[in-house]
Design a binder for these strands. Structure first.
Length: 610
RNA sequence: GCCUCAGUGGCGCAGUGGCUAGCGCAGCCGAUUUGUAAUCGGCAGGUCGUCGGUUCGAAUCCGACCUGGGGCUCCA
């Protein structure tokens, strides 16, 4: 009996090794493909896995209606119209069912059908019928089947050969999603999954995801005591001393750039009579996102944007063409009511500060101003080593102010600047603001979700609504052009993305505590204090760890807090009047004198190196 | 706003109807004075998100609300 089990186990082991060898051969083939062919194969694989998912769901929940199941980055999803929602337990059961289908290793067969045949095959499914209606007459209509014809789905195509090719997949999560992405249409149940050409790739992906989750700014914000949230002010961050140091360093940096790029900074009010929001158009276009306050029998609006205030400030005196371009920076705090369910850590909040500025200029100055802004932006993003930037150009929406000619002109200017700027960008048709076209900059967070940071927008509406004029050379009164621009965007959002980008290990110039001095024994504390004094005198943020811990524990604590430099002091250092330096990255440091260290620290800070 | 999951000391978690709600870290006190990622011992800290209901009895079951997470929608 015992021998029999051993035999069984051996057979199983042999089978497993055969499978892994096959897997290896498969992935070797895959690795020889061109990057483009790789992507096509993965798309086909993922889309095919979605088909298998659909069959499994139908088997377990026969009343479910199929809708769509496309491949997405790293995986796929399938939307079902089904009464119940899927629990994590359901996902496990579905996954099991999928494995059964995969083990049968049946072929995916695509075949073309007539519209009538297609309609007949999906006659009870209003979603598929709607899809059919959206397919034009000159397009092919195809059905795809697998499991020897036991499962069939209306589908554009792009599959792998057999279900057995699906070697490595996992259902990740379920969520509600509106049909056709429209919140007025029914909510479907979506299942997200991931699929890869080999088990190794799947594992790699899952590990990478887990690592990324560790960099979540909400977790690091707590661990490093940067900020917190409280339910009495939902979606409104409190910045703790550590987080505030970082923010202030960012402001300091921005003000240096403003000096270089010739901006002037102003401060404007927080709350305005509703009258202002009526003039600016916010009252009719943006009031559902605004906070209102009733006072002295008057309605007031808390500012969601700085521009109307900036307009009033511009109007406070008369301007000549000689004043332009006038670049006014405003770090005003904004409040926007965001619907519950859309807020997200620091990256989507209800109160925030932008590194906002308004540039009042002539038409001729638009192009050079935008170019100069993009230069400043790229200079600053380089400082943070953001290398995965994505630029978009958003063009005229349906609801807009200004005539077609003005828009043509504005869009052309932005396009030319972007072309000259030689960065890749995509055009988002109809996504511009009602008052003008814009360029946006997107940066991904740890798990790849993109956040809009920088933005530059032309505005034809504001000068008209507020009558923002200047006196031209010929003495005539001309409306100026307003350019809204934010470089880092919202400081809160920027910090959130930055934390994830750096995994909480801030460069020396930003980090809350730059050096920590660790005495090995209490008798070393006085010497540590004298070192600390020297560092602080040179403007370094430094502390002595006087806790009762052992040196090892102090080093560990400093590592966890990601403090860039640890200075360790024992008998040897005191005897030689030197210091011993350890960096958080454990790079060897030959520095053994405090003077040299201070010099090096200041250099690193001034260069803002990462 | 919609779908869904969750909420237990500062943080991370255990506890699925029945003794006084546990554990680790952090904190405080004491001992220890140590050479490059955790020294030992003790103490203190929670009306289990809020309100209501079911029950002899609720952290645990039900409902509403609040807050947060994952999505969808939205995002001047």
């Amino acid at each position: 009996m015992c021998n029999f089990f051993i035999l069984l186990i051996r057979i199983k082991l042999i089978l497993i090794s055969i499978i892994s060898i096959l897997d290896h051969i498969m992935s070797k083939d895959f690795n020889q493909l061109s990057p483009r062919a790789k992507q096509t194969y993965l798309d086909n694989l993922r889309h095919s896995t979605a088909h298998v998912l659909a069959e499994a769901v139908l088997k377990l929940f026969p009343q479910a209606k199929l809708t769509i199941g496309p491949p997405i980055e790293d995986g796929f999803y399938y939307d079902f119209d089904v009464k119940k929602s899927f629990t994590p337990k359901d996902l496990k059961i579905i996954e099991k069912e999928m494995r059964k289908i995969i083990n049968k290793n049946t072929e995916f067969i695509e075949h073309e059908v007539t519209r009538t045949e297609a309609k007949l095959s999906v006659k009870n499914n209003s979603y598929k019928l709607e899809i059919l209606d959206s397919i034009s007459d000159n397009e092919k209509i195809t059905l795809c089947s697998h499991s020897d014809g036991n499962f069939e789905d209306l589908c554009r195509g792009g599959h792998i050969k057999k279900t057995g090719e699906i070697k490595a997949f996992k259902l990740m999560s379920s969520a509600g999603a509106y049909w056709r992405g429209n919140e007025k249409r029914p909510m479907l149940q979506r299942i997200y999954g991931t699929a890869w050409e080999s088990k190794e790739s799947l594992e790699k992906y899952i590990n990478k995801r887990e690592e990324a989750i560790k960099r979540d700014h909400r977790k690091l914000g707590k661990d490093l005591e940067l900020f917190f949230f409280d339910e009495l002010a939902p979606a409104s961050p409190y910045f703790l001393p550590n987080g505030t140091i970082i923010l202030n360093q960012l402001y300091k940096y921005l003000r240096e750039l403003y000096k270089k790029y010739e901006y002037k900074e102003v401060v404007t009010p927080q709350i305005f009579d509703t009258e202002l929001w009526k003039i600016s158009g916010h009252y009719s276009n943006y009031s559902e996102n605004m906070y209102f306050i009733q006072q002295d029998e008057k309605e007031h609006g808390v500012k969601p944007m700085n521009c109307p205030g900036a307009a009033l400030l511009y109007k406070s005196k008369s301007h000549s063409y000689r004043d332009l371009p006038l670049r006014l920076a405003d770090f005003g705090r904004l409040h926007r009511y965001e619907r519950s369910g859309v807020t997200h850590g620091l990256t989507r909040v209800r109160t925030f500060t932008q590194d906002d500025a308004h540039i009042f200029c002539t038409t001729d100055q638009i192009a050079p101003e935008i170019k100069s802004f993009l230069e400043m932006l790229s200079e600053s993003y380089k400082t943070f080593q953001f290398n995965k930037l994505r630029f978009t150009l958003s063009t005229r929406p349906e609801k807009k102010v200004g005539n077609e000619k003005i828009w043509d002109n504005a869009e052309t200017i932005l396009k030319n600047v972007l072309d000259e700027f030689s960065s890749e960008y995509s055009i988002e048709d109809g996504e511009g603001a009602f008052y003008g076209p814009k360029i946006d900059v997107f940066v991904p967070d740890a798990i790849g979700r993109e956040w809009q940071l920088g933005t530059v927008q032309l505005d034809f509406s504001l000068p008209e609504r507020f009558n923002l004029e200047y006196t031209a050379q010929d003495g005539s009164r001309v409306n100026c052009v307003v350019i809204h621009r934010a470089m880092l965007g919202s400081m809160e959002r920027f910090l959130g993305v930055l934390i994830e980008h750096l995994a909480g290990a801030f460069p020396l110039w930003l980090t809350p505590l730059q050096t920590i001095i660790i005495p090995i024994a209490d008798r070393h504390i006085n010497y540590c204090k004298s070192i600390n004094l020297k560092l602080k005198d040179s403007g370094i943020r430094s502390e002595v760890d006087e806790s009762n811990d052992r040196m090892n524990a102090k080093i560990r604590n400093a590592q966890i807090k990601k403090i860039p430099y640890m200075i360790i002091i024992g008998d040897n250092e005191i005897k030689k009047e030197s210091i011993s330096v350890r960096t958080r990255s454990k790079n060897d440091s030959n520095i053994n004198s405090i003077t040299n260290l201070i010099e090096k620290l200041n250099e690193e800070i001034n260069l803002r190196s990462i």
